[in-house]
Design a protein around this nucleic acid. Structure first.
Lengths: 110, 110
DNA sequence: TTGCTTAATCGTAATATTGCAATATAACAA
DNA sequence: TTGTTATATTGCAATATTACGATTAAGCAA
């Protein structure tokens, strides 16, 4: 079907899955890593940096923006993107509830 | 196209994306949360717990197993699943390289 | 105005993912 | 053996994702 039955899961489970999907493509990982590395807003050169066509990059940026992980501000003919620090921290917190769950030790039976 | 151009990205970027894809579906999030909550190997009741058909759960379990995040041991007619603690820690470390990147502060221009 | 640059959107093709009915397999019980 | 239970696999339909050429829109320069 291709359509996840999100209605049978909790809001938290769906939220974690949605954030995870954002990281589920290497281009988006590369974009985020580059934004962190530059440590500033970056105007324009993501297409050359990543190596995908301009519409493809634009689409990936749109997804990251819709999730709130990055924000873009218009600067003349170009758009500057950077990490949305507040939302990034919120995302880290959400993901942390899954990733940092304590590892079973005592009753591990495998 | 639906096919990611993984060859133009680093091994790390692809690895992070692959782990993230595992968390990119609420059913798999729910499965992992349940395994952590039970804090032991669990035989059989994942279908009732999650609320999807048995073949669907089996498929999600297969994906998690292929990534090494869980392991299953055969116990008679049933299979017991639990978190693969070693690989879980490795995954956390990989994901951490992206999630815990320092937030830009000084040169933030947006 | 015209032309150039930059980024978003549209349209479309190819591949991936999700979900489940039907079936297969495997272990055990009687 | 036969029947039961539990899980995996197969096959398929529906939807999602990825990628990019073509186009559009918007700002700026001459």
């Amino acid at each position: 079907m291709g359509l996840a039955k999100s209605e049978i899961f909790t809001a938290e489970q769906n939220e974690i899955a949605n954030f995870a999907k954002a990281f589920g493509h290497p281009a988006r990982v590369a974009i985020l890593q580059h934004l962190f590395k530059i440590n500033a807003c970056i105007c324009g050169d993501l297409v050359q940096e990543i190596g995908l066509a301009q519409p493809t990059i634009s689409q990936h940026l749109k997804e990251l923006k819709q999730l709130g992980l990055i924000k873009g501000t218009i600067d003349g003919t170009s758009v500057c993107y950077c990490i949305d620090t507040d939302n990034w921290e919120k995302m880290k917190s959400k993901m942390g509830t899954l990733l940092h769950l304590n590892i079973p030790s005592k009753t591990d039976c495998c």
